[in-house]
Structures are given as structure tokens and as C-alpha cells.
């Protein structure tokens, strides 16, 4: 009887701990982890750029990612951008290859906040997602199924956004919406992830959209093909591979 009472007490204690709201930092770490959960990813994407008049432009690209710090993006179309490639490495190192110039160029920090190839994503946005490393998080609100966080760039981290507001699902920690605010704290961009489904053991959003509210311009990314844990070699994420036009 005594044993049963102890067991019930333990269960109540652990149940109480389990029911506690995780810290904002934990939520953010989990959000990064769920997005970058696969060891590696190879994704074929179709990007549709839509301006305020409803005119559309389409880009196709292939993205390779390993872990949460190495990403290579290669444009397949349109023809005038074919072969343009972008490499993001640890320690904020980014390279761009422009086939017309036969050169790999290191991206200086002043360009990192420029739009990437006419999309609404900056070069910095195109890097692998690691919000927890770059932002301090505060939990603003907990709704029935979402955590709402406010993210402020950490001391010494230079961002073109003064703050972010992030909506994270409670059930799987997938970030479904991010608002990006400019230096005057005015809402600038909106990022939304849609069609979040299990792909094997990983959660994957097959559609995402970044909207620049100032320009009234949006970039929608549709995943056309995804392969996870293929065993991508580190060699893919090198300057050597960057200039291999495929």
C-alpha cells in the first residue's frame, strides 16, 4: 500500500513536470531541431515569385542540406540564372558562384541582407535555420496548440531584423509562422510553412511562403521532391562542388 502511494506521488510529480510549459529557449531549440532533424536533405523546389500586380515568375532549384549548418542551393531555371549557386557554411561563411564570371565569390556581410536572386529571401534567410544560436527568445503567449515567441538578435549578432515573432506548434515544435520586423519595429516580412506532414520519421513542410509586406511581393516554395538521410558527403558543401554546374 505504501509502495503504491509512493508510486502515485512520483507519477504526480513527473506528470506535473511533464505538463510544465517549456522555456522559450527550449521551444526555440526544439523548433530548430525539428526543422533540421534529418541528417541530410536533398530537395527539389519550385519557387513562384508574385508581385503586387499578380504577375508570376518561376524558379526551380535544388537544395542540399547536411545537419543544421551546411546548405548548398543551385538554380536550375530560369535560363539566365541557371547554375547560380549559393553555399552556406558554419561560422556565417557564405559563397556565391556566378557561372558568367567563372568565379566563386565570398559573400561580404553587407550583402547578406540583400534579396537572393530576386526572391523575398535574403542570403541570410537562405542559410540553414539556427534561430536558437542567433536570437534570444521570450515566450509571449501559449494558445491551445501554439507557442508564440518573440526573438531578439543576441548581443553581437548583426541582423537586418530588429525582432521576430514566431508561432511554434506545441505537438511537434514545427515553426508555422514567423514575422520579421525591421529596425523601426515595423512588420516587414511574413514567413509561413504549410502542409506539414510526416515524411518517414521527420516532419516536413512541403510548402512555404515568404511575403515582403513593404514590396507586396511574395515567394512561394513548393517541394517537388524530397530525399532524406541519403548520406550526402561533406564534399558537396565545398567551393569545389559549388562551381560544378549541373
Amino acid at each position: 500500500m505504501k509502495k503504491m502511494a509512493i508510486t502515485i506521488t512520483m507519477l504526480l510529480i513527473f506528470g506535473s513536470i511533464y505538463a510544465q510549459i517549456p522555456t522559450a529557449e527550449d521551444i526555440l531549440i526544439n523548433a530548430d531541431a525539428v526543422v533540421n532533424a534529418p541528417q541530410d536533405q536533398e530537395i527539389s523546389l519550385k519557387m513562384t515569385l508574385t508581385d503586387k500586380g499578380g504577375n508570376e515568375k518561376v524558379r526551380e532549384m535544388r537544395m542540399y542540406q547536411k545537419g543544421d549548418e551546411m546548405r548548398l542551393v543551385r538554380f536550375l531555371s530560369p535560363a539566365d540564372q541557371k547554375g547560380v549557386s549559393f553555399l552556406s557554411l558554419p561560422d556565417d561563411v557564405q559563397y556565391l558562384y556566378l557561372p558568367a564570371f567563372h568565379k566563386v565569390r565570398r559573400i561580404a556581410s553587407h550583402i547578406k541582407n540583400d534579396n537572393f536572386a530576386g526572391t523575398d529571401f535574403s542570403y541570410d534567410d537562405m542559410s540553414a535555420s539556427k534561430y536558437a544560436e542567433e536570437y534570444d527568445a521570450t515566450l509571449l503567449e501559449k494558445t491551445d496548440d501554439l507557442y508564440i515567441l518573440e526573438l531578439i538578435p543576441k548581443q553581437g549578432v548583426e541582423k537586418s531584423y530588429s525582432k521576430l515573432k514566431m508561432w511554434v506548434r506545441q505537438d511537434n515544435f514545427y515553426p508555422v509562422k514567423v514575422e520579421f520586423y525591421d529596425n523601426n519595429s515595423i512588420l516587414w516580412k511574413l514567413f509561413e510553412s504549410r502542409n506539414i506532414k510526416k515524411h518517414g520519421e521527420y516532419w516536413v513542410a512541403s510548402e512555404a511562403e515568404m511575403t515582403d509586406l513593404k514590396k507586396e511581393h511574395s515567394t512561394k516554395m513548393i517541394t517537388e521532391k524530397i530525399e532524406l538521410n541519403k548520406g550526402l558527403a561533406d564534399d558537396i558543401f565545398t567551393k569545389r562542388n559549388l562551381k560544378r554546374v549541373k
Binding site: R105, R106, A108, S109, H110, I111, E158
Partner: peptide, 10 residues
């Protein structure tokens, strides 16, 4: 050489 000095590409 190529790199950055502060925010400036050099």
C-alpha cells in the same frame, strides 16, 4: 586576397 572588413567587402 578577398574578405570583409567590418561590413565592407574588400
Amino acid at each position: 586576397f578577398a574578405g570583409s572588413l567590418l561590413d565592407v567587402g574588400i
